[in-house]
């Protein structure tokens, strides 16, 4: 029996545990079905096997064996493509779509989780071989904690203040506070909107937040999350009841107009606050300004 059997097995187990902990059906509402989960657990297993075996290969001097990690990298890039394609297909049939920015964020998260699994398996196998079982348990816990920490992004409540404002009409124009949302021509629809509609104003806390909130993908993510969490008063053939988010050009505030089935203001504010700030939407113009102060030629 190989001396590496237990370290490798332990590395694989830790990798799978790490993947299982990261595979939760959360705010993204995906994957919700069993087969989708099996795909990710199987890929997590492959990632953990690769991570665990890499260490004994290196110790035994079999340097070329580590090149299969590059095969793993291209394999997991395929995972990203798979997620993107699946979600794009599903998005066409959503009443309130996720939007491409959100989908790209989810696809990237799925790819990066597999790399975190490889890292966990490598670290635990290495510590098992170099030290002993108990040290590797501590390393495994640290790796899993680190993975969770790395997978948690920022929330919208960190970058803006959220307040409820009842939507109103000025003529045919629908407004949330002073932000123009859209023109609703039919009195019938106006009545429905006044009955079921809710408005929220997101006030950015700083200039970076202002630019992040301006991103159309970020706004679509907010609309998708709130419509998924609280339900939506809408069907196909009633596009006038589509939730919208518009921006005040003066100060960067964003007016959110939604028609949820559960009209609980506190819950809605909480859901909006818990919407993730999308990696692809985050902008930091102030960082650029700081750099400009130091060196103006590094454009």
């Amino acid at each position: 029996m190989s001396i590496y059997l237990y370290p490798v097995l332990f590395g694989i187990v830790c990798g799978i545990i790490s993947r299982l902990l990261m595979l939760r059906t959360d705010y993204r509402q995906y994957p919700t079905y069993l087969h989708g989960k099996i795909i990710h657990i199987a890929l997590g297993f492959i990632a953990s096997v690769l991570g665990s075996i890499a260490i004994p290969s290196l110790i035994e001097g079999n340097i070329t064996a580590t090149t299969f990690l590059t095969v793993a990298a291209s394999q997991f890039r395929e995972v990203r493509n798979m997620e993107r394609n699946t979600l794009e297909q599903l998005d066409q049939y959503e009443l309130v779509s996720r939007g491409n920015t959100y989908i790209e964020g989810i696809a990237v998260a799925f790819e990066s989780r597999n790399y975190l699994v490889i890292f966990t398996s490598m670290a635990t196998t290495l510590s098992f071989i170099l030290f002993d079982f108990w040290v590797s348990i501590i390393i495994a816990i640290a790796c899993i904690y680190l993975s969770r920490l790395l997978m948690d992004g920022g929330k919208l409540s960190d970058i803006c203040e959220i307040e409820y404002v009842k939507p109103h009409f000025e003529g045919e124009g629908l407004y949330v506070d002073n932000i123009y949302i859209m023109n609703i021509g039919l009195p019938e629809r106006q009545e429905e909107i006044m009955k079921y509609g809710m408005g929220f104003i997101l006030t950015p806390k700083n200039f970076n937040a202002n630019t992040t909130l301006a991103n159309l993908g970020q706004r679509q993510a907010i609309l998708h999350d709130i419509s998924t969490a609280l339900g939506i008063y809408k069907d196909s053939g009633t596009p006038a009841l589509t939730p919208l988010a518009k921006r005040d050009l003066e100060d960067g505030r964003v007016g959110i107009f939604v028609l949820p089935q559960i009209r609980d203001i506190d819950k809605a504010i909480k859901v909006i606050g818990n919407t993730p700030t999308l990696e692809n939407a985050i902008r930091m113009p102030t960082e650029r300004k700081k750099q400009e102060g130091g060196n103006r030629n590094d454009a």
Binding site: E172, I184, G185, L186, P239
Partner: peptide, 29 residues
């Protein structure tokens, strides 16, 4: 105008926008 507008909205999957008291348009967004 409102009755036909409501029907067209559903049929064309568009939104009825009122421009003036006399004119409405149906636009799919």
């Amino acid at each position: 105008m409102y009755r036909i507008g409501a029907n067209l909205e559903a049929i064309l999957d568009g939104i009825a926008h009122k421009l003036t008291e006399e004119i409405m348009i149906i636009v799919k967004h």
